[in-house]
């Protein structure tokens, strides 16, 4: 965890357009290390665009995203070249999406171990770490199953395991329970939050669901590409 009060992620005056549509209209946002932040807002408000800019998936038209992990020099995520950003996403960031986006032809264990193999970890070690994580997510008996053989909640837990297996500093989750029923959502979030709180992982979770957002430490509301009045950083 970051040992100072410097936010681990700090966005300033983020602006981004898709053609004539202004998706982000000057966003300022700080995320503290170890914090679980929910980004809420109506459909099309720009919350996913914000997440993509914070994670370096998307380069904003203007503005900065500063990433300041403990004991490392701060970096402007938008200023990194494609290769550097890919590296950052592989080593420091984890991602969970609404539909797990698991590879259908690989079993749960292999799906989880992919990021480790891409990071150069030897296969036996990658499988060992993945197995430990699957067990923590109550999926010990499911490791040989293909995604198509898992329930929605189980598949999403595999996606969580895949996102956390590299021990990321920041986990970005975009509607992680958007396709699940209440009970499965609760199960996924409870287990996910248990793991991230234990590890001190920072989480930025986009959700339109207040019950999911209630697992976070705080929320911000994005509306029409801007942080809603009551949630802005005090000037």
């Amino acid at each position: 965890m970051n040992t100072t009060n410097t936010p681990i992620l700090s966005a300033r005056d983020l602006r981004h357009s898709f053609g004539p549509t202004d998706a982000l209209r000057g966003i300022d946002l700080d995320v503290q290390a170890g914090e679980v932040l929910a980004v809420m807002g109506p459909s099309g408000s720009g919350k996913s665009t914000l997440l993509h800019c914070l994670a370096g998936v998307l380069t904003p038209d203007s503005g900065t995203v500063t990433y300041s992990p403990a004991n490392q020099a701060p970096r402007d995520v938008g200023g990194l070249n494609e290769q550097e950003r890919s590296r950052l996403r592989l080593t420091d960031f984890g991602f969970v999406f609404q539909f797990g986006q698991l590879l259908p032809e690989l079993n749960a264990l292999d799906n989880v171990s992919i990021p480790l193999l891409l990071a150069g970890i030897k296969r036996p070690e990658a499988l060992r770490r993945s197995t430990v994580l699957l067990e923590r997510l109550d999926l010990g008996s499911m490791s040989g199953k293909l995604p198509g053989e898992l329930s929605g909640g189980q598949a999403q837990r595999v996606a969580v395991a895949r996102a956390l297996v590299t021990a990321p500093t920041v986990l970005f989750a975009d509607e992680p329970t958007g396709s699940l029923d209440s009970l499965a959502s609760e199960n996924v979030l409870t287990l996910m939050l248990e793991l991230v709180r234990e590890a001190g992982t920072t989480v930025v979770m986009v959700t339109h669901d207040p019950r999911s957002a209630a697992y976070a430490d705080r929320e911000v509301i994005v509306r029409d590409g801007a942080i809603s009045a009551g949630y802005r950083i005090p000037a």
């Binding site: 207040p210 019950r211 957002a213 209630a214 697992y215 976070a216 430490d217 929320e219 509301i221 809603s228 009045a229 009551g230 949630y231």
Partner: peptide
């Protein structure tokens, strides 16, 4: 927004 924040705080408590 203030009312929403109050509601969310209560939801966090219950969660």
């Amino acid at each position: 927004d203030l009312q929403r924040a109050e509601h969310m705080a209560r939801m966090r408590e219950l969660t």
